[in-house]
């Protein structure tokens, strides 16, 4: 931890992440116009440029963009956590089973991950999102379905090394049922690197979420989702550039914060190299 914080970039990442989490948590308190994020409109102040009242200006319906960006932080953090959580729930048991049992089960699970991994994650999420139909929760599922194979692979690798360890051999010799071995003995000893990886993935997940919303697959109006705000604001960007600028800045800083932190973490844990690139 000390080594992590000695690096100015990692420290910057941590500061950004803390600010983001605070913004998400305190959005109702901090937002000057909370109702603007919750469906209210304000037709008297359409396209109001940023000033003392509307810090980031207003949108086509006169809503305060700052308030909406704050509430957007809640959506991004919450959906991001759920998407990754779902990917873990799917991927981790499969990887543990594949790694523990080996053989045909392993082969089957690994070939399935091969197929999923032969799409860029963004495309896979888009294709699944399109299949499920546009909505924020479907986006979440789509991202989870695009991400689980990474965790399956990772946990499988860990499990194949753990299964040779004496305490697993002992449990097997004592006749403990195979699935009990997986969940009692293998999982607790392999989960740590996956949790680390998942937290490092948070930036990419937030970015993918915003991208899907930008394409119209994710959140629907009037949700104050950042990608969706840019999609709507895009039409007006010549005359009201603030409309796209601030939500985009929010996405950028959020993803940057998590990636800076993740990169620093990776450097501390595995100084030799990047295990995977995305």
């Amino acid at each position: 931890m000390k080594r992590l914080l000695k690096n100015p970039l990692s420290l910057a990442g941590l500061v950004i992440v803390v600010i983001l989490l605070l913004a998400a948590l305190l959005a109702p308190v901090l937002a000057p116009f909370p109702d603007h994020a919750l469906g209210g409109v304000n037709p008297v102040a359409r396209f109001h440029p940023p000033d003392g009242t509307y810090w980031m200006g207003t949108d086509d319906l006169g809503r305060d963009i700052f308030s909406r960006v704050l509430y957007g932080a809640r959506i991004s953090v919450w959906t991001g956590v759920l998407a990754i959580g779902l990917a873990l729930v799917l991927g981790v048991p499969l990887g543990a089973v594949a790694g523990t049992f080996g053989g045909a089960v392993d082969e089957l699970i690994m070939r399935i991950t091969d197929i999923f991994l032969s799409f860029p994650p963004l495309l896979l999420a888009i294709a699944i999102g399109a299949m499920l139909g546009p909505s924020l929760s479907n986006t979440m599922i789509a991202i989870a379905l695009a991400w689980w194979p990474w965790y399956t692979r990772l946990i499988r690798g860990e499990a194949t090394s753990v299964r040779e360890r004496p305490f697993v051999e002992a449990a097997r010799a004592a006749g403990v049922r195979p699935l009990v071995i997986v969940f009692r003995h293998i999982l607790p000893n392999t989960i740590a690197p996956v949790i680390v990886q998942a937290s490092m993935d948070f930036g990419s997940v937030v970015l993918t979420l915003a991208s899907l919303s930008f394409l119209g697959l994710g959140a629907q109006v009037p949700t104050p989702e950042w990608g969706l705000m840019i999609n709507t604001g895009r039409t007006y960007f010549v005359n009201a550039p603030w409309y796209v600028t601030y939500p985009g800045l929010a996405i950028f800083l959020t993803v940057l914060g998590f990636n800076l932190l993740g990169d620093g973490l990776r450097e501390v844990l595995d100084p030799k190299g990047v295990k995977r690139s995305a």
Partner: peptide, 20 residues
């Protein structure tokens, strides 16, 4: 910093900013 910025910036937003 350049590298991490590159992978963190939303491309559709960067597109709009560059146009602007």
């Amino acid at each position: 910093l350049v590298a991490i910025t590159g992978v963190s910036v939303p491309s559709f937003w960067l597109a709009l900013l560059l146009q602007l």
